[in-house]
């Protein structure tokens, strides 16, 4: 469902993403792991056609991100970092707006809103203005927005960042529950999250793909500890990069 072909993005002299290449299939929950500034978010911004790659391309849900950005966006759900949403709207009017932009109508839109509202357990706040909600609720509204059209591909940038342990647990449960029928990419720098939700993990550092495998495989390489392996690959790469 996602096929990334040597995608590269530069910001001035900094190479944020340096020729990353991978594929992800339906039923996979793929975790992007990496230190801050590793290029996780930039990669996601390119997959969601917010940024255009400098070179390379990717195919998402059968469409090329360069040639058919709007078709790609039609088929994916995206929660950007910090899940920005319009604070001045009520939850219901916000979801209706997203549905309008996605071309959903009448009864189908109403049903879709009902579905995501109960899925994300935001029933109690649908008529509240978004800026009055707690962080946990805001994040769930952000997630509801991304699920409204029941997309095949879901891209979540640090979906649990800044949430309390209970809220984290809830979001992870939701992701796990959807994992079998969709292709989900999540980014995180919390290693326990990989164990909790991902069926596959990729470690990214300095814009490059450093490791790729199931959480169990990666753990094995770190003699049973994902932390150790993570530190080993990312630090090793940093010193190498520093020397060059």
């Amino acid at each position: 469902m996602i096929k990334v072909d040597r995608i590269t993005k530069r910001f001035g002299s900094i190479v944020a993403v340096d020729g990353i290449e991978f594929e992800a299939k339906q039923g996979e929950v793929l975790g992007f792991l990496g230190p801050n500034g590793a290029g996780k978010s930039t990669t996601m911004k390119m997959l969601t056609c917010f940024l255009e790659p400098d070179s390379g391309t990717a195919e998402v849900a059968g469409f090329d991100i360069r040639k058919n950005p709007v078709e790609v966006r039609r088929r994916l759900g995206y929660v950007p970092e910090n899940a920005p949403i319009y604070g001045d709207m009520t939850v219901r009017s916000f979801l209706r707006f997203v549905g309008d932009v996605r071309g959903m109508k009448g009864g189908a839109l109403r049903n879709a809103i009902d579905r995501v509202v109960s899925l994300c357990t935001i029933d109690g706040v649908v008529n509240q203005t978004i800026e009055t909600l707690s962080k946990g609720y805001k994040r769930r509204v952000g997630l509801a927005q991304a699920l409204l059209h029941d997309p095949d591909v879901l891209i979540l940038d640090e979906p649990t960042d800044g949430l309390d342990p209970n809220q984290k647990h809830h979001v992870r449960e939701m992701i796990r529950g959807m994992g079998s029928e969709k292709c989900i990419v999540i980014s995180t720098h919390i290693l326990e999250e990989v164990d909790a939700v991902c069926s596959r993990a990729m470690i990214i550092g300095r814009g490059r793909l450093l490791a790729d495998g199931t959480p169990a495989e990666l753990k094995e390489r770190g003699n049973g500890k994902l932390d150790d392996y993570f530190r080993k690959v990312t630090l090793e790469h940093q010193t190498k990069g520093g020397a060059a």
């Binding site: 917010f50 966006r73 950007p80 319009y86 932009v101 996605r102 927005q145």
Partner: peptide, 14 residues
């Protein structure tokens, strides 16, 4: 400022 531009421009709108 609010970052919602990323939300808006990743919806199917040019």
């Amino acid at each position: 400022r609010a970052g919602t531009v990323e939300l808006l421009l990743t919806l199917p709108v040019t």
